[in-house]
């Protein structure tokens, strides 16, 4: 299955892009934690920054065991700096 993950702020800066599409080894469903692990494995420059990050699925921060489907909107949420 393929999932697209959105990046903002320092994550987008590190990736030089605002999104990436991952080809996940799972067929129909994976988890938010597996997506985060794939990001860290395929993009080593994100590894340190991902430690404190959450994955949002369809605009809601979710726990690592949250199921993810192909058409879900995923985003990396971390290192925020509002205010």
């Amino acid at each position: 299955m393929k999932v697209t993950v959105l990046f903002f702020g320092p994550y987008a800066d590190a990736m030089h892009d605002s999104s990436v599409t991952l080809d996940m080894p799972q067929q129909d469903t994976c988890t938010a934690g597996q997506v985060k692990a794939q990001l860290a494995e395929r993009h080593p420059k994100l590894r340190g920054m991902l430690k404190s990050a959450l994955i949002a699925v369809n605009h809601q921060a979710v726990p690592p065991d949250q199921p993810v489907h192909e058409n879900d909107e995923l985003a990396v949420i971390g290192l925020v700096s509002g205010g």
């Binding site: 702020g9 949420i77 700096s81």
Partner: peptide
Amino acid sequence: MKQAVPIWKR
């Protein structure tokens, strides 16, 4: 807010 709300400043 500074921990959880997805806002980034540059």
